[in-house]
Design a protein around this nucleic acid. Structure first.
Lengths: 112, 112
DNA sequence: CACGTATATACGTGATAAGGTATATGTAAA
DNA sequence: TTTACATATACCTTATCACGTATATACGTG
């Protein structure tokens, strides 16, 4: 399970990450909220843990899992150059519309 | 090959996307620059095409492939709530350092 | 029309990952 | 210390994906 991208390719893992967005959660909570079997949850959590997406603290017999930011930031970093790319596209589209559209009723788009 | 996340999980596909960031490319160009066999390139391009990451135009026998923004924006959108999460973390870390550090030589960090 | 070039597709194979069932480990409570 | 609870791990099976080799399709040129 090499890269962060492979980790988040799995839908159940993305669901788990989504859950942890709000609060830390025990394994049992995740199991119930997502309707997966306990071993499945544990296995996905192990993957996420090994990749640094989550960390756990012990609360008696429970483990409370919470998010860690780093791997997600790595994904964000990968996206960065592409973001620039598509922002150019939006600009180009806007310019195109400015040229071709009759300014509808228009909220004062720029261009004299 | 359901989701955009599975698509970009494959390293060769990410490499192809990276190449297309600069210019549109023919299959042969990709093949040479990335050192993959031609069928492999074509297959990955098909996956990327079906998922809307790229589009091609015909130039005689060549196909010129270029990026399309939408699927990448989808990934970006998925990241959004997590971005908020880790920005809180950075804030918390900064506040922590403000409390514990002697202001080094400090470029005038806030706090009265 | 024959041939070379560029790309796509078909088919077979191996690897790997995900889920299920069963079981192990560790903690708490009676 | 026996029992109940929470989580982790082992093992097996199945499915899927990526690659390689071979072949098909399509265009251009002599």
């Amino acid at each position: 399970m090499e890269s962060v991208f492979e980790i988040i390719a799995e839908p159940n893992r993305r669901a788990i990450l989504g859950l942890l967005l709000t609060n830390e959660q025990s394994v049992g909570n995740i199991e119930r909220q997502l309707g997966m079997t306990q071993p499945t949850v544990s296995k996905h959590l192990k993957v996420l843990r090994d990749a640094g997406f989550v960390e756990a603290t012990v609360d008696a017999q429970r483990r409370l899992y919470r998010l860690k930011p780093e791997p997600l930031e790595e994904i964000d970093a990968w996206l960065t150059p592409f973001r620039q790319f598509w922002m150019k596209h939006v600009d180009a589209l806007e310019r195109h519309l400015d040229r071709t559209d009759p300014p509808t009723k228009s909220k004062g788009r720029r261009k004299k």
